[in-house]
Nucleic acid binder design. Structure first.
Lengths: 134, 134
DNA sequence: CCTTGACCTTCCAGTTGCGGGAATCCCCAT
DNA sequence: ATGGGGATTCCCGCAACTGGAAGGTCAAGG
């Protein structure tokens, strides 16, 4: 199975798969012509990585998770810890974005959005002493 | 006022201020010795940028907002449009992160997190046909 | 006068996770 | 032979900085 087929099978772009090989996440065999040859195990790993990435795990998290996945003597606590740390990061990000969202929402509401130059959004950015929600 | 003072006054790292000059967001004067000299207007701009950045606006958004801020004939609608587009991006990001959060939360809940190797998190990443929440 | 230390300068490299594109090679069909 | 659709490597670019090296400047203290 060549890289194009692997890409179609996993839903990952071929470029991404090459990158994953570069950084040592997968190690497909090579045909005599130099083409990468992907077996079921490679595909499985790529799928694993793709799903972990879609949950927002970093590449290094993926590397650790894959190692644990392949370690039959792992402790599930090790996996859980990685996931929990990641969850905390996600939560922090959500909180930060929601704060932005709130402020942005207030500013947008307060702006007429017409042809006149008066704009509370700019006024707030110009000074912003913390009184955006009156 | 040298860059260190400007950094303390605005809360931005000196490196960041130099970067903003590099990309043309601010253009402080120079002393004879080559040191940057920041006046009130420069500080004002830096504060403006800092606040816009803290609301998640991109550098290019900041550039546009700054230009509108300095254009006395602007229409507030132009500002509002930028803010609204940004708000939509923020909302999309929040939605995406919340989806991750939900899945992660289910996975973590279902994992014992002890010394044994059985781990639903890894099992899900290994196959994940869309049945993470039973 | 010299040194020390805190500034400041420029430039270069690295971060994250790829994507774009060039130049070249390979394979199969006509 | 030639065309088209693969595949390969390599290098640059993105966003928005951050870190570090190598060196210039300045004021204070001995």
């Amino acid at each position: 199975m060549n890289i194009g087929d692997a890409a179609r099978a996993t839903g990952l772009p071929a470029k991404t798969i090459r990158y994953y090989e570069d950084i040592g996440l997968v190690t497909p065999a090579r045909d005599d012509n130099g083409y990468r040859r992907f077996n079921d195990n490679d595909l499985h790993k790529l799928g694993f990585i793709g799903r972990a990435r879609s949950l927002g795990f970093t590449i290094e998290d993926c590397r650790a998770l894959l190692a644990l996945y392949q370690d039959k003597d792992r402790a599930s606590a090790d996996v859980k810890r990685i996931a929990q740390q990641h969850l905390e990061l996600v939560d922090a990000k959500i909180t930060e974005l929601q704060a932005m969202r709130t402020t942005l929402g207030h500013l947008i509401e307060s702006c007429a959005g017409d042809h006149r130059p008066d704009c509370p959004i700019l006024a707030d950015l110009a000074v912003a002493p913390g009184k955006e929600a009156s």
